[in-house]
Simulated assay, not measured.
Amino acid sequence: MSPGDDDGYGNDSGRSNDGYSTLGGTRQTRTRLPDGQGGDGYGPRRPARKSRSLLTVLGVVVLLLAAITFANMGGGGGGGDGGDGTPGSEGKKAGSAPTAATGTKPVAGKNGDIASGFAHDQQGAQSAAANYSVTLVSADILKPAQRTQIVRQVFVAGRVDELETKFNQAYSKDFLDKVGLDESGKAAEGMTYVSRTAPVGTKVTQFADSSATVEVWCTGVFGTAGVGSTNPVSNDWFTMTLKLQWESNDWKVDSFAQKDGPAPVNTDRTASNADEIAKAVEEYGGFTYAR
């Protein structure tokens, strides 16, 4: 998919018009409001910083967005007609619903560290979208070995080769150097690279027997923890839109995009120091998400 593909993602008229700008957790210092379907607009308030640090962070963000735009160039598959929540039902636009016990097991197992075996219904599609959102915005996407595994497990087979090549080109050694990571995607000694996402809720906007579109409202922590870090860990709120296809008895991603918010008002709570953040990331594991 590309900023101007058939899916309609990335046609925003703002600071970033790519669909993958949440990847790798370098989403820092957003300054404008969202105004497009697939655009990126990041506007959560941040504490005031020295101008030099601000310029450094902005420079890193610009580099990331340029690389992601390159990786994002390519065709994306289209979705089917809307459904009423059951396989094969078409012609209606699906909506959101509160989480409730349904008797359907939405996750059957895992393929490595990534949940798999999702139910062939709206519940399963929402569970798949939530879990894939966490994976696609993880720090592992910047690590060559893990990136290959992620692309092959998350995306539909027809997109794998194209996206694997583009991701590898975008996250080259030169690019990783510029964001403070080595060629393996690891932070410098004494630093901890953080990219942890937590889905807050999901909404189905289209559903059919073989396709679904799901929006995932997320929050997370992103940045580099360590003394002297120029990309300090901060939180963000964003919504990811994933177009899914039913393939090989599971939901897979055909394309995705993201936009800013909805974001709450930031509190004045004192920020934890870098050691506390790094320790929390190491000690607290992630979840498998399901409806």
Rank of each mutant, 00 (worst) to 15 (best):
D254N: 08
M240Q: 05
L244I: 03
L65C: 08
K279F: 10
K243Q: 03
Q149V: 00
E276T: 13
A139Q: 10
A257Q: 01
Y132Q: 15
Y284S: 11
R159G: 00
S184Y: 14
G43K: 03
I68W: 09
N266I: 06
L54F: 13
G24C: 09
G39S: 13
G226C: 13
A274S: 14
T29Y: 14
Y42E: 12
P106A: 03
N249G: 03
T219H: 05
A157N: 12
V233I: 02
K178L: 11
G25R: 01
G14V: 02
T270V: 12
E282T: 14
T288Y: 12
S211A: 06
R196V: 15
G38P: 12
R147I: 06
T56G: 11
I114F: 03
V151K: 00
A271C: 00
G14L: 09
G76Q: 06
L136G: 06
T99L: 01
V179I: 15
Y171K: 01
D113M: 04
E162D: 12
G95T: 04
S229Y: 06
D236C: 04
L55S: 11
K50G: 14
A187K: 09
K203V: 09
T22R: 06
R147D: 00
G19P: 10
T239D: 05
N249I: 04
Q122H: 06
D177C: 07
L58P: 01
G109D: 03
D18E: 08
G201R: 10
V227Q: 15
V200R: 09
L65R: 07
T192Q: 07
N111G: 02
Q126C: 09
S229A: 14
N72K: 07
R152Q: 15
D260S: 13
